[in-house]
Amino acid sequence: MTACLRRFGITVDLGDPAPPPFSQNARRYGLADEARASRLGYSTPEITKRPSRPDLPAKARKAAWGDGPAKIRGRDLPEGGCVGEAGRTLNAGAEPAGTLADRLAFTALEASEKDRRVRAAFARWSVCMRRAGHAYATPRDANRDRRFIDGPGHRIGPAETAVAVADVRCKQQVRLIDIWASVEAAYQKRLIARHKTELERDRAALQTRIDTANSVLHRPLK
């Protein structure tokens, strides 16, 4: 993007991309960090306060996303602006990006959530929560409590943090995450075996994109 913008006489510091707010599976089974639960409850300020686009000057914004005239300084903007050009550069030579792995991951999670072993762990967790004074059938119900949903004017209060801390402690007490993760892993392995050929093709396409990205990163800016 920086190299593309320079072709139009625009020099801006795009900065580093915002890091992911959580590691990939940090909240896969809901809250798991008691220290965080005691401070933030179910709130996720890392997500709600994350900007969707870099804050660029108007001219740079038009060139970056193609929002505006088709030409800048007599030069034709690439389709989709410099963002579009960057995407095409990074995907060059690779098969179209697949979503199979993501879809299988969701399928495995959904199946594990209905598994009798996980449902039994949910029931034990629910009993533990009831003893702490909170009535929820599953961790999803606690996480989706309308009182605790991030939004304009939402304030984290003692009611939310009390439920969140009890949630984490009860998960630990009944070993819910250990059970849920092992059950889901079994479903994942079955799906991986069933879709091995397609997944290997997607892995090769991903490796092509990684190789291209590394090549771009070592290319001097013009």
Rank of each mutant, 00 (worst) to 15 (best):
A63G: 00
V12A: 10
K189T: 12
K196H: 12
T138F: 01
G15L: 10
G41D: 00
L56V: 00
P19R: 00
E46R: 08
C128Q: 02
R117E: 14
P17K: 09
A159Q: 07
G153H: 13
L14C: 03
V12Y: 08
T212S: 10
D102I: 15
A164I: 05
I177V: 05
D102L: 15
E95R: 07
T89I: 05
T208P: 07
A162P: 08
A193H: 15
F22R: 01
A213C: 01
V12S: 09
P96T: 06
R131Y: 10
I192V: 12
P96M: 04
A181P: 01
T161V: 13
T99K: 05
G153T: 08
L104Y: 02
R50D: 06
A63K: 00
S126G: 11
H154C: 11
A204V: 13
C4Y: 00
L206K: 06
R147L: 12
N91G: 10
T2M: 12
T161H: 03
G87Y: 08
L56C: 07
G93R: 06
D167S: 07
V183N: 03
C128N: 03
L221R: 09
F122K: 01
V118G: 01
A94W: 00
P51G: 14
Q172W: 02
G66N: 02
A204H: 12
A35Y: 03
K196D: 07
C128Y: 03
T44N: 05
M129V: 07
R146I: 09
W180Q: 00
E34R: 02
C4I: 07
R50H: 10
R6Y: 15
R27I: 02
I72K: 05
E110N: 12
P20K: 00
L191R: 10
F122T: 09
P69S: 15
A92S: 07
R53D: 03
